[in-house]
């Protein structure tokens, strides 16, 4: 537990710095809020729709594929630590795991899921 004290102090320092900066700019700055402060442009066309536009579903598919291969990689870490001691058994186990996912990878590739257009 005590090994993580520096990380905790680092987090506290980062949060504290952000808090202090916000606090100082609130205290020392001149709060002048008017209608024009909140509008994107002081002249020109008024905003007519919210900025949150709908995105294409391709982003979602890329994110799903990223997570799936991310999880596959996460399984490789403990295996990498023990595979020397596990010998051939461990190698075959991971080969089966990777082979199943390779089928999925080949399917992604052939269906063009990795191409943007």
């Amino acid at each position: 537990m005590i090994d993580y004290l520096p990380i905790g102090l680092q987090l506290l320092a980062a949060a504290g710095l952000a808090f202090v900066i916000l606090l100082l700019s609130t205290l020392l700055g001149r709060p002048r809020h008017s209608h024009t402060d909140l509008s994107p442009y002081e002249c020109g066309i008024d905003p007519f729709e919210p900025a949150g536009k709908r995105y294409t579903v391709r982003f979602y598919m890329v994110a799903v594929l990223f997570i799936l291969f991310d999880i596959e990689t996460a399984f490789l870490y403990p295996w990498a630590m023990v595979f020397r001691d596990m010998g051939m058994t461990g190698f075959v186990e991971m080969a089966i795991f990777i082979a199943v996912l390779l089928v999925g990878f080949a399917y992604c590739w052939r269906r063009g899921a990795l191409d943007w257009d």
Partner: peptide
């Protein structure tokens, strides 16, 4: 079996 789940999720997403 987890690899099969990942495969199914991959195919399903596509």
């Amino acid at each position: 079996i987890a690899s099969l789940f990942l495969l199914v999720a991959m195919v399903g997403a596509i």
